[in-house]
Computed example of a mutant assay.
Amino acid sequence: MSRRLKVLISGTGFAGQGHAEAFRAAGAEIVGMVGRTPEVVAEVAARLGIPHAGTDWQAALDLLQPDIVAIATPGGAHFTPIAQAIAAGCHIFCDKPMTESAETAVDLYQRAKARGVKTAYAASFRYTPSVLHAKRLVAEGAIGAPTEIECMSHFNLERDIPFGWSHRKEDGGGRLNNNFTHTLSIVTSVVGDKVLGIFGDLRDDLGRAPIVKGVHNFATRRDFIPKDLTDPALEWGESNVEWSYTVLARLQSPLAEQPVSVLFKHGGLVPRFHDDHIVFYGTKGAIHLKGHYGSGQLSLYSKDKGWQDIPLPRDIAAAVPKVTGETEQCWHYLARELVKDIQGETVDPYPTFREGSQYQQLIDIIRKTHTWTDTSDLF
């Protein structure tokens, strides 16, 4: 394919701008951006050098006829623009969560499959260099057969971040949609993606948040926290989704005879004491990745040598996109893979709408299933 692929962006915030830069770095042409607010989309598009700025998604699809669309809005706003893009025959790059529910996510997956378009689902922290390194080591047998995994993270988010989509289940909010999607993608990329069973305990320990106008960029929402939270004129919105979770899963792995046990523990509003981490345990050793998405130092444990920090292989280091920010690096990596795939190059498997629809089904199961056994009458 000799011509440059054309990309249309949905969303003007941190993700929309990040997706635009990722596809531009992958050699594609960013032909347009669509947003809700005319003056905002006009300003962002002009600053990024994007020729078309508008608020009508279908009109932009008809006018620009893009090869790829990048969906960078909150999950609750994904269904209609994705459905319209599929009908237009566009390949799709969609940020997580895929949608607000299993039903709509499965619907889109089936539509994309029937239309024959390629899809990329940006639960993309599986592309941090240390996770790629861990994947290689586990595949090489460095820890023997994997037996269990733990994913620990504590974000200590500000409780008074202005009320918005992240507080609402129907808009794709909640920590399962916006944290669990990444850690599940990391774990399944390393040991295998067949989830045999899952359950969890969820908690909304936030309750409410102040309603503030003018927040257009998720990355700068902290700047809008009201200075006087006791102001009687302040309006409040009620959260209806989880801010902390503990999830247990069993995965089938081609590297192990028995299912792999996985603990996903996330506290969105609580502080960390020790470092967040992801650890892969096996019959012969273990791999510790520092950081909530395992993007820090990789350490390998063996019975002979104990824990040792392992340097990043040169080829993995060389493949890291040259851009600031782990989120941005991962978007660049996945966008690069999608572009190569569309152009007919051979690429490793990457997360698609298959994974996105599976994750939404799992999240719905976790939210609906009550697994506790009542022991209140025991002596």
Rank of each mutant, 00 (worst) to 15 (best):
Glu148Met: 15
Asp223Phe: 11
Leu263Gly: 02
Ala112Cys: 09
Leu157Tyr: 12
Ala335Gln: 01
Ala120Met: 11
Asp364Lys: 06
Trp331His: 06
Asp56Met: 04
Ala60Ile: 04
Leu132Arg: 14
Ile149Gly: 10
Gly285Pro: 06
Asn177Phe: 14
His332Ser: 09
Asp95Val: 01
Thr104Cys: 00
Tyr301Glu: 07
Gly76Tyr: 13
Gln84Pro: 01
Glu235Asp: 10
Ile149Phe: 10
Lys118Tyr: 13
Lys290Gln: 15
Val260Met: 02
Asn240Glu: 14
Ala85Val: 01
Lys118Val: 05
Phe218Gly: 00
Ile225Gln: 03
Gly285Tyr: 05
Trp331Thr: 00
Leu184Cys: 12
Trp57Met: 07
Arg203Tyr: 13
Leu132Asp: 02
Leu248Ala: 13
Leu206Asp: 05
Ala53Phe: 06
Leu229Cys: 01
Val34Arg: 02
Leu48Ala: 07
Gly174Ser: 11
Ile92Val: 15
Phe224Asn: 06
Phe218Asn: 06
Arg336Gln: 14
Pro259Glu: 10
Ile149Trp: 13
Thr37Asn: 04
Thr104Ala: 02
Asp309Leu: 02
Val40His: 12
Val279Lys: 12
Pro232Arg: 13
Asp205Met: 06
Gln252Asn: 12
Leu137His: 02
Ile161Glu: 07
Gly268Tyr: 06
Thr230Leu: 13
Glu328Ala: 10
Thr147Cys: 11
Leu255Asp: 05
Ser130His: 04
Pro226Trp: 10
Gly237Asn: 09
Arg3Met: 07
Gln358Lys: 13
Val262Thr: 00
Val131Cys: 08
Leu202Thr: 13
Leu8Gln: 09
